[in-house]
Design a protein around this nucleic acid. Structure first.
Lengths: 165, 165
DNA sequence: CTTGTTACTATGAATTTCATAGTAACGTGG
DNA sequence: CCACGTTACTATGAAATTCATAGTAACAAG
């Protein structure tokens, strides 16, 4: 799991990719930005196997993007939360989502996510800054809402996960 | 190599990751944004094996981010260029680089990349919009310059690649 | 003392990656 | 006309990773 790439180059893109250059890692971060903090939530919504999730969370923790927080002693249970470094990844996530909405979907599908800028109360749009007020967007200053279809898909994933046990 | 994930979800992040959720793919895009269009350049600077590069370029082509352009008949030779869809990935790349510069390097290393905004002639900074003029940044409207150290690393990679044949 | 909850760990088969080497199609210089 | 150089790959087998499936651990509740 160790990646020497990061130490062998000054390239910031390569350094970043050594940390987040993995599908599961990004999907986990998506869930954390969506405020799903528990292992089973992350597993259910990403569709990853427990090993994939466990390994990625461990790596995210050692890489400093995630901290474990106890929410229950006896039995000991942890939630996973973003650190400053993790939160700072938001612009990448936001840009990635915008690209995905624009270029990886057929037009008739419409947007799956709609963001409202908390400070101005209006839609953020897809751009790097709020289309309504022009300010740069920070997490947690945006409120995400899913399209009904996408929300349904999420609910179905949760049900399917629960049913399979 | 096929990825059913994209068809099974409305999530734009998952859709995007099905296309670019891979270290080599992102490094190849980095080179294309840096205007290195030839196979051997991409191989040398990314450090990938020819199969990795060839497979990713093929997938990038079928996914519509890259086109092959003939630059020499007899022997037939192609260059790889970004399409509109590929160019549209720039904001993600830019944000990723900014995150890497900020969070994946020790302070004393300094910035590896410095961007100048062509339209205003001043530095862009790390943010989503030009720090000098406030406009959103588009490729190819930014001019990249590498720090001497990073440039040296790149040159060394090229030399090492050439020497190994 | 059986069932339920949450968070993982174990195992072996399938797939992917990596290092190394080699091929192909041509131009060039002798 | 033939050996060498250039560019872009392809081939091969060992090593590592991923996936599907199943199971464990530590407790609470009834």
């Amino acid at each position: 799991m160790k990646d020497k790439t990061a130490d062998q180059t000054l390239c910031p893109v390569a350094r970043a990719e050594a940390v987040v250059g993995d599908r599961w890692t990004v999907l986990i971060l998506r869930e954390l930005f969506a405020r799903n903090h528990r292992f089973e939530e992350i597993q259910a919504y990403t569709g990853g196997t427990p090993q994939m999730i466990a390994a990625r969370l461990k790596k995210l923790e050692t890489d400093g993007l995630v901290t474990r927080r106890v929410y229950n002693k006896r039995p000991l249970r942890h939630e996973y939360h973003l650190t400053k470094k993790g939160e700072a990844f938001f612009p990448v996530m936001f840009a990635l989502r915008a690209w995905g909405e624009t270029w990886c979907k057929s037009p008739r599908e419409g947007l799956s996510m709609n963001y409202t800028h908390f400070s101005c109360g209006k839609p953020t749009g897809l751009g790097p800054v709020c289309q309504s007020c022009g300010e740069p967007l920070h997490w947690p200053d945006v409120v995400a809402e899913r399209s009904p279809k996408y929300q349904k898909e999420r609910d179905a994933r949760w049900e399917a996960f629960k049913a399979s046990r």
